[in-house]
Design a protein around this nucleic acid. Structure first.
Lengths: 279, 279
DNA sequence: GCTGATCGATATCGCTCGGGTATCGCTGCA
DNA sequence: TGCAGCGATACCCGAGCGATATCGATCAGC
């Protein structure tokens, strides 16, 4: 199986249309048809059911689509990482969500900078849920992420920090004076619907709450008495005066982990991980 | 970058000899030289330093070797999994070390078999440290492994079971009557050197202890008063009469996890994981 | 029920490129 | 200094990839 064939197959499997896939690939349709047929012959199994009106994936095709996407990511990652390793002083790209525990990050960067032979660290600010793809595509070398919100599937991780969650409420709200609350107390307030974040696909889940993209927006809304949210303790530190943070007893703890692709052998990555776990 | 080029590069990088690599690949040396040169030109970076006497990897080459091996594994895995998905009733291959907690495994298999739409489960008995490669090569769909002994790098895992460790001693040994011991007490007995297991490479670490491959061999040795070992509690259950198990207070706990490749989308794997975590 | 549009498959051609053999040039060693 | 080992280069041939033209099947609309 060759990368070219895989790239072609993934295009067709995603478009479910030979013509459009060929256009996307910048080739004509007949060689695409032929390449897929040949791939099927090599594997000895049908990947697509085609009539002249509709193309659908077989079971085997669905499996190959998932594996193929991962392989294509790995290939672009390999190319990028190889090229970056060839530069004179390769920098280290650390992917973090904007809003990641500022103190931890500052301490980490300081401690690593003090290491002998430390590389320049480039921060790659990304949206939530994006870390994983950045690491798999080779755009980042290492990331800080928050379980269970972010997925660490297929990544190596080391635990850095565990914290509870707090509810952010308008300072004037009756619950704001409680010393602790339960999840149900805050998620079921009809006057303060819990805000919604974009999911992995970038689209918002259904619900009554407002759609927000970042903490500033969100805190504004809460201060206006229009919403509420449950966030990790560190995100609720240093609040505006008109907001209050109340520990939520039964919210799942949030774990900050440092994550990297499993076959990374860069000394700089290893150093950063060592420093991070010793903080 | 094409798979063919990657396969060629990995061969040369491993052999560090164009002639031998060409032989291993079943092609002549000149096209191999040319393919590597072309790969270097495409990536815009040198991968190998060559004189007419010696070939060495550059930094970039070392990175590409690591990434390339992973990609080649992923490709063979994709082929295998695609072909298996095409069979009428794909079975589920579960990789376990011989000696894996028998009771847990039996319960798991029983519970899964009771699931509606359960697939046949093929057990793939493997050596320690082999699981990971079996999953990455697509020979197994899911594995039971023991942290921190086995590495789960790049795999998704779910925790199943945590247990302490016990020292296995001859029943007649003075320590055998203690209710608990410390690691130091048993690992520093000059008359009973701790047995050695083969490492990830299949070779044995240095040390005074005997080399063993399985528990039966080992228990035999211990009964003869020639060795001792620290193993998870479950491996020390149902011992021969001439052996004793003593809890080791400060040995790290052993965690049995179920592990699977991160982009597995097989319903049968998902079912097995669900059953396993609900045991 | 016919007709045209849509879409994947097939036929055929030209050219690129991968693989082969022969040979060169460099290097370390006797 | 001559030889052996090894990678690079030169050159040739055939497989395979991509393009164009065309076919055949299926569905929509009148």
């Amino acid at each position: 199986m060759e990368i070219r064939e895989l790239r072609y197959f993934v295009a067709v499997a995603e478009e479910l249309h030979f013509g459009k896939a060929a256009q996307r690939l910048g080739i004509a349709q007949p060689p695409l048809s032929r390449a897929i047929t040949q791939l099927e012959r090599r594997l000895g199994t049908a990947l697509l059911e085609r009539t002249s009106r509709k193309v659908t994936l077989t079971e085997a095709g669905a499996v190959l689509l998932a594996e193929g996407r991962a392989i294509l990511s790995a290939v672009t990652a390999a190319e990028r990482r190889t090229q970056r390793a060839a530069t004179a002083h390769p920098s280290l790209v650390l992917a973090v969500k904007s809003g990641t525990a500022g103190e931890l990050l500052a301490k980490l960067l300081d401690a690593y900078a003090a290491e002998p032979g430390a590389a320049t660290v480039d921060l790659l600010l990304c949206e939530a849920h994006q870390h994983q793809q950045l690491l798999k595509d080779g755009e980042a070398d290492v990331a800080l992420l928050h379980l269970p919100f972010d997925s660490a599937a297929g990544l190596d991780t080391e635990l850095l920090y565990t914290e509870g969650q707090v509810a952010i409420l308008p300072a004037s709200h009756p619950l704001a004076s409680c010393s602790q609350v339960r999840l149900n107390d805050v998620t079921t307030l009809p006057e303060l619907p819990v805000a919604r974040w974009p999911g992995p696909g970038g689209s918002y889940p259904e619900g009554p709450g407002a759609e927000v993209r970042n903490l500033t927006q969100l805190f504004q809304l809460i201060a206006l008495g229009r919403s509420t949210v449950v966030v990790p303790e560190s995100a609720g530190a240093d609040l505006r005066r008109d907001l209050a943070a109340v520990p939520v007893l039964d919210a799942p703890p949030v774990t900050t982990v440092i994550a990297w692709p499993p076959h990374s052998r860069l000394r700089t990555v290893a150093d950063l991980i060592r420093v991070a776990t010793c903080l």
